[in-house]
């Protein structure tokens, strides 16, 4: 007599497989993020607790760097000024991106002759190096530059206009530089959103008697929401953390009269010194400024990103 014993078959549940697959897929991204973002962020916190001129021994000062930046009038006033100007810088850029970018993207979405050529032209500045763009545009608006020459020769102005030499116009001019350089990126994102609008929905709205504007407003714009949010988050993070144009053109002093000072220039000046004084430098305080900037923009960036996810 033979007896057969059946072994129980342990099958992994579909749910478990799904979890494993998901984790395996996420792992490379998480590892990369941890290596290049999260660990450096922790190191930044560690650095913010020391007084260090970038060389030599580090002196542990606890939270003194944060206290100094937030309460010492000399540093606090600079930070407030930089923060407010950074907000203005951001608002001007994002308004230009969303208004002009949407307008140009809508024009490009219409199937007309030369559309592809215009797409290339609008996108052309984007791959250019920031330094090249900064110097080109600095020369362009210079008192001896072509823009002023044209304005004076055409009789619109009596003398060259100090685009970067006046505290009233320097920051706006800088934000125009940024806008011109990155507009192609905004146009492409918005254009891809417009092209994703289902044509049957547009046709249905028109059959229902909607005007062209009503169709755009009620069918196209709602689809563009995620693209707008993505552009806003990317630009926000970029302009609060980088200051390439200002540093290249106006230097770490961010003149005239600190009117182009934004968080990036304030941080750079604290770490490496300005051209007016290179002796008072502190990487620890610069790290504290970087962390404070992150804390300030994180809630807004998270809110927008989560809202975007929920909508999707």
């Amino acid at each position: 007599m033979s007896s057969t014993t059946s072994k129980p078959v342990h099958r992994i549940s579909y749910r478990a497989v799904e979890i494993i697959q998901r984790n395996l897929l996420l792992a490379p991204g998480v590892l990369l993020y941890a290596t290049f973002n999260f660990i450096p962020l922790l190191a930044l916190f560690q650095l913010s607790l020391v007084n260090w001129p970038g060389i030599g021994p580090k002196v542990y000062v606890g939270f003194d760097n944060f206290t100094k930046v937030l309460t010492h009038p000399y540093y606090r006033d600079q930070m407030l000024n930089a923060l407010i100007q950074n907000l203005v810088f951001f608002v001007v850029i994002i308004v230009c991106f969303l208004l002009i970018g949407t307008l140009l993207a809508m024009l490009l979405s219409v199937k007309t002759w030369g559309r592809k050529t215009y797409q290339v032209i609008f996108f052309l500045p984007y791959p250019m190096a920031g330094a090249a763009v900064a110097y080109l545009l600095d020369l362009f608006v210079h008192p001896r530059g072509p823009l002023n020459a044209a304005l004076v020769q055409s009789g619109l102005l009596d003398s060259p206009f100090p685009f970067l030499g006046s505290e009233d116009t320097a920051l706006i001019t800088m934000s125009m530089f940024y806008t011109w350089h990155r507009m192609g990126f905004a146009i492409m994102l918005i254009l891809s959103g417009i092209l994703a609008v289902r044509s049957d929905l547009l046709e249905a709205s028109m059959l229902d008697g909607a005007s062209r504007w009503q169709s755009i407003r009620h069918v196209v714009f709602p689809v563009l929401g995620p693209a707008f949010i993505l552009i806003t988050v990317i630009v926000m993070v970029d302009v609060f953390n980088n200051a390439d144009y200002v540093l290249l053109i106006m230097g770490p002093e961010a003149g005239p009269l600190r009117s182009t000072d934004i968080m990036g220039t304030f941080l750079f000046r604290t770490a490496f010194g300005g051209s007016a004084d290179t002796t008072d430098t502190n990487f620890g305080m610069a790290a504290a400024i970087g962390l404070l900037t992150a804390i300030m923009i994180l809630p807004a960036a998270l809110f927008l990103a989560l809202r975007n996810l929920r909508q999707q």
Binding site: H142, P143, S159, P160, P162, F163, L164, G165, S166, E167, G255, P256, L257
Partner: peptide, 9 residues
């Protein structure tokens, strides 16, 4: 007697 916009230069 100075350049018109010193801060621009």
């Amino acid at each position: 007697w100075l350049n018109p916009n010193p801060l621009a230069d």
